[in-house]
Design a protein around this nucleic acid. Structure first.
Lengths: 244, 244
DNA sequence: TCAACTCTGACGCCGCGTTACTGTCG
DNA sequence: ACGACAGTAACGCGGCGTCAGAGTTG
């Protein structure tokens, strides 16, 4: 055990890092071997090995090499600041990734219910979610998701069909030129209120968010093209009468 | 609204991406403008804008540009595989980051209790945790953490002091040449069992893990230098007598 | 002499940011 | 003629992997 120094290859084998990495650490001044042979081969002493272990430990925690170098420069003060900073970054990254994951999961779920999925639908779904996240708080989205799950796929699909039927009927009345205040149209308004109530679950904040979305984005976008501006105008009149 | 095409700057303003990015997307063939002016200025049509929106949507989900290009190449089939793959990667990354976060948090906590923290201590703490994660399952670590929190800082510190005292007393007996089977030493063994029991919380699996750690790593490393091999041998004899 | 090591130097990755210099439009 | 645009070309980042070519060691 009187080995005083070792060359790169041996150190690489013992520690599991690559020779290239050791070269690189030398190059950037992170781990400069204490000695060289006469022809220039790197010789690492025990102290170097210790330092390498320290480097690997810090690297494992996700610090970048520059941070590690700075850490090891101060011999008697551990960088509590660096840790706090790193913690904050990690937290942020985790939150971001988690949100991404949830979104992707939701999208995957949505796409499973559909049969023919072209990219347009796919993108539309994404932009749809973007819009939703703009108007609903994460708690509200969570609540909506909860209700979705408790309701089940069939109910959801049924609700979608109901909506389509309702919109189709309104369109027919509009094209017939029926007065928005007529009892036929008012019945449809009544029906829409029921469907909306089913969606919001009676939560007035969610209803408010839904309202904001339609106001800001316009009905055409918010309804994914199901309601054009003309139809929206007609239906808005009918709703105004209803409120009055 | 008869604008048929726009130049880079305008598109950049409208979509919020940088001109450089648009150049880059052109360069790698991700978004090649449909037209150019006679002098070579890029002209983006409506279709290009749509494609850019799609690109941005997919990018938002964390796909790399090559994946996006592949996605947009298939017009009638959404890459469910890509989503699944991406989900898996994200999940893995989140798990990794979360573990890192927990580790860093624990380290920060440990360092707070100490007053003078040099890098050696810091690194030692890290390698300490590495060792622990090698021998304890995540559930066991969680359990230990739980008990730590319920006990509180003062109790923990008291336990550490107790251990130090105990070890010091054993060392004294060893140096005096006391028989390990003597009642004085046996009393210390008894006391150590109590302290271990306090640590393990009576969980035999945790006790087993602790045992494995001392066996595999050696007492000097497992105890962070508090117990050298000579002392460990002496104390082992005493424990053997006790079991018998 | 031959294989297995060592050295230095350079390019490649990903997604652009950032100059630097030249040309065009109004 | 001037300023705000447009173009291309190039380097830089981080942390190495991966050659290439030349020298050393046993």
């Amino acid at each position: 055990m009187e080995r005083v120094a070792m060359k790169v290859g041996e150190l690489a084998k013992q520690t599991g890092v690559s020779v290239r990495t050791l070269h690189y650490y030398d190059q950037i001044g992170l781990l400069v071997p204490s000695d060289r042979t006469q022809v220039g081969h790197r010789l690492y002493t025990e102290a170097d090995i210790v330092r390498l272990q320290q480097i690997l430990s810090l690297r494992q925690l996700g610090f970048c090499l520059e941070e590690i170098r700075d850490c090891l420069k101060q011999p008697n003060f551990s960088p509590q600041n660096a840790i706090a900073l790193h913690l904050a970054r990690l937290k942020q990254q985790i939150e971001l990734s988690t949100r991404l994951y949830q979104r992707l999961e939701a999208i995957a779920q949505q796409l499973q219910t559909a049969q023919h999925v072209c990219i347009e639908d796919f993108i539309a779904t994404i932009e749809d979610m973007n819009m939703w996240e703009k108007y609903y708080t994460s708690e509200q989205l969570e609540e909506l998701n909860q209700r979705r799950q408790t309701l089940g796929e069939d109910k959801i699909r049924q609700a979608q069909v109901d909506w389509e039927n309702l919109i189709a009927q309104v369109r027919i009345e509009m094209e017939k030129g029926t007065d928005p205040a007529s009892s036929a149209v008012q019945a449809l308004v009544q029906r829409s209120q029921e469907l909306i109530g089913e969606f919001t679950g009676g939560n007035p904040e969610i209803e408010q968010s839904l309202h904001n979305m339609y106001q800001q984005e316009g009905a055409a976008i918010a309804s994914r093209g199901a309601i054009d501006s003309q139809l929206w105008e007609y239906f808005s009149k009918a709703m105004a009468v209803s409120k009055h």
